[in-house]
Simulated scan of single mutants.
Amino acid sequence: MRFIVSDGVRTLVPGFTHLAIEARGLVNGPSDDASSALLDDAARRLAERLDGRTPDQDPHIAAWRAAYTAFGAKPSRTRNSAEALARRALADGGLPRINRLVDAYNAISVAHLIPAGGEDLDRIQGDMRLIRAVGDEPFTTTAGGEQTVEHPETGEIVWCDDEGVTCRRWNWRQGPRTRIDDATENAIFLLESLAPMTVDALVAAGAELAESLERLSPGARITVHSPV
C-alpha cells in the first residue's frame, strides 16, 4: 500500500510532508495504565511547550490553520486533529481514552503538536490518496446511531482509498470503516507536518511512536518509512 499525495494538494500546500509507520502483529485492547500514562505525559509536555499560549499560537498549528483556509475550511470551526486534541488536553477532563493503539498516536499528536492518525490495514482498499475532492466521493459515517453516506465539498482536501473517503477535511474527521478498534492486528499510522516543522522533528515524532507501539504490543513488526 502506498500513500499518494496529488499534484493539486502539493500545489496548494507545498510545504506538506508525511511519515508512515507500518505495524503488523499488533495486540490491541481497551486503554490501560500504560496507554493512559502516555496521554498524561503528552499533556504535561504540551503545557510546557505552550507555556500559557493557546494551541493556535504555536507556529505549526498556525501553518495548519492557513492550510485549512487555503482549501476553503474554517479552521476555528473544523479544527485540524492536532489542535482539537491539544485543546482537549488543556481542558478540564483532559484527553479521552479510546484504546491502546489510538491512545499511543494521540499522545504523539499532543506531545509534538502534529496531526497523527491510524488506519486498520486489513480494511483499506488499495492505496491511500490525499486529493482535492470532486464532490461525489462517498464518505460512510454514522449519524444518530445509523450508518449514512456523506460527500465532501468540491475542492476539499480528503484522504481516500479505492472504496471512498477515509478522512474528511484532511485530518478533521475519520470515518468508521477503516478506524482502528480493539480487534485491529495490522495498522498504518500517519504523521503529517507542514513548514516550519522540520523533517528531523517529524522523524523524531515517528521514532517515538514506533517505540510506544513496541512497548504496548511486544513482538509486533514495526516499519518506519522515510518522510515524503
Rank of each mutant, 00 (worst) to 15 (best):
V158A: 05
A47Q: 15
D182M: 13
E185C: 13
G144V: 08
L101Y: 00
P227R: 01
L85R: 08
R65H: 13
G52R: 13
A47H: 14
T154A: 15
E153K: 11
I222D: 02
W64N: 03
S36N: 15
A107T: 04
I131Y: 03
Q147D: 00
A220S: 06
G219A: 03
L121I: 12
R49S: 12
P115F: 08
S36Q: 15
I131W: 03
R215F: 10
P176R: 07
F3G: 02
I98Q: 09
I98R: 11
V203W: 07
R77N: 15
T11G: 00
I4L: 11
D7Y: 02
F139V: 00
D58A: 06
Q147W: 13
G155L: 03
T178W: 08
G93D: 08
R132F: 01
R45Q: 15
P196Y: 10
T142R: 12
R24G: 01
P152E: 10
E192K: 14
A104D: 04
D162S: 10
K74S: 15
R87A: 08
A116I: 13
A220I: 00
Q147T: 13
A111M: 08
E119Q: 12
R49P: 11
P138G: 10
S217L: 11
D182R: 07
E48V: 13
D56N: 12
E156N: 03
